[in-house]
């Protein structure tokens, strides 16, 4: 029981830290890392709820299967999000670039 509580609380704190970071940081990679930490926290709570000490009954395999599914999906979602972030960065800073060229360094030409 204490083990379950300990790991559940850890998962909860991980979730909260991830949520806070997700909102206050502006860098896309940091946001994706934060989402990953959040999902890890949720998985930890799920698995901890199914935990039983050795010799005190069977472990519920259904949360394990759900977490397994969730891990694989979260990896593929992370990959897609990273690709989107790269794509956004490659395509959407052009207006910033134009502005910067006009304001600060008009001599600089690139691409």
């Amino acid at each position: 029981m204490i083990t379950t509580l300990l790991y559940s609380m850890t998962g909860l704190i991980l979730f909260a830290m991830g949520l806070f970071t997700l909102i206050i940081h502006s860098h896309p990679l940091r946001k994706i890392l934060a989402v990953n930490v959040m999902s890890t926290g949720v998985f930890l709570i799920l698995v901890a709820a199914a935990y039983k000490p050795l010799g005190l009954g069977k472990i519920d395999p259904v949360p394990h299967a759900m977490v397994l599914t969730g891990i694989v999906v979260s990896v593929s979602v992370t990959a897609l999000a990273l690709l989107l972030a790269c794509r956004v960065q490659e395509t959407s800073n052009l207006d910033l670039l134009e502005r910067r060229k006009q304001e600060a360094r008009p001599k600089e030409s690139n691409q």
Binding site: L5, S8, L12, A49, A50, G57, K58, I59, D60, P61
Partner: peptide
């Protein structure tokens, strides 16, 4: 956290059904 704190000691799982 309070929800987790008040979770039942032995939650009814699907272990027996499985």
């Amino acid at each position: 956290g309070s929800i987790i704190w008040t979770m039942p000691e032995n939650p009814p799982g699907l272990a027996d059904a499985v």
